[in-house]
């Protein structure tokens, strides 16, 4: 990347490398304050898991649409093949997360899952206000949000639950024999409507990601500017730079 990462910061192991002057050149500098430097927002394992999830989800949406929408059936057909791909992709979807959580390499993911599951008083206030005022500067209202904002926390809870429901109803439909017809009708109902809702929610996630290049870039490179964190996740910035005195000195 364009950022110049001072040698001192690299010596700090794992997440939370805060650097003094590693300001990536030429990326919307007007937005930035003079703090400079960057934080590791997502480690390599988290990024790999994210993009594997995204690929499998896209495959599920495409094959699901081909199975479900008659115009696509008329174009693509091959129901058995498409169904097999859909079923395997669905069953594979939990694997990247499970693999990441199963070893020491998943430290970053585990820490972030703990964060995304924890609701601060500030989170609840932010949510009660309808998420307005946000973390945008200049509004006079500065929320002290952590690494993940309440919207992301809700999204994570929804996605985890919805994913398991999709997996459960999908398995029921694939191995339907032991179940009465009413269950299958119910499973189809849930699977189809939840799929639609899931696609809408993920589309929202993608739209928000695309509208914040820095945030999306951090899912590619892992890095986020300290100035971004100061704006959007000040409590996280404190957490990262406030734990070790040397880091704070370096970044402020």
């Amino acid at each position: 990347m364009a950022g110049t990462h001072p040698p001192g910061a690299a010596s700090r192991p794992g997440r939370g490398a805060a650097a003094r002057s590693g300001h990536p050149a030429g990326t919307g500098a007007a937005e930035r304050d003079s703090a400079g430097g960057w934080l590791l927002r997502f480690d390599r394992v988290e990024r790999v898991v994210h993009w594997l999830n995204a690929s499998l989800f896209a495959l599920l949406v495409l094959t699901g649409a081909a199975l479900y929408l008659t115009p696509l059936q008329s174009l693509i057909g091959r129901r058995e093949l498409v169904e097999t791909v859909h079923v395997y992709a669905g069953m594979a979807l939990p694997l990247p997360v499970l693999a990441a959580l199963s070893g020491s390499w998943g430290r970053g993911l585990r820490a972030d899952l703990a964060r995304i599951n924890r609701w601060s008083a500030e989170d609840r206030r932010w949510l009660r206000s309808g998420g307005r005022g946000g973390a945008r500067r200049g509004t006079g209202v500065r929320w002290r949000l952590g690494k993940f904002n309440p919207g992301q926390k809700l999204n994570a809870a929804f996605s985890a639950g919805a994913g398991l429901v999709m997996l459960g109803t999908g398995c029921l439909l694939r191995w339907y024999r032991p179940f009465p017809l009413d269950w299958r009708v119910g499973a189809t109902f849930v699977h189809n409507w939840l799929a639609l809702l899931f696609v809408v929610v993920v589309a929202g996630h993608v739209i928000l990601a695309v509208s914040d290049r820095d945030a999306m870039g951090s899912m590619l490179t892992g890095r986020i500017d300290v100035s971004w964190a100061a704006t959007h996740a000040p409590a996280w910035l404190d957490e990262e730079v406030g734990t070790g005195a040397p880091a704070r000195e370096r970044s402020r």
């Binding site: 809870a157 985890a160 639950g161 429901v165 009708v185 109902f189 939840l194």
Partner: peptide, 20 residues
């Protein structure tokens, strides 16, 4: 997340009547 699971299970049970 547990809420979603409960909703999903409930949906399977009441889905047929909901569908109508």
């Amino acid at each position: 997340m547990l809420g979603m699971l409960a909703l999903g299970a409930a949906g399977v049970v009441v889905g047929p009547s909901l569908e109508q």
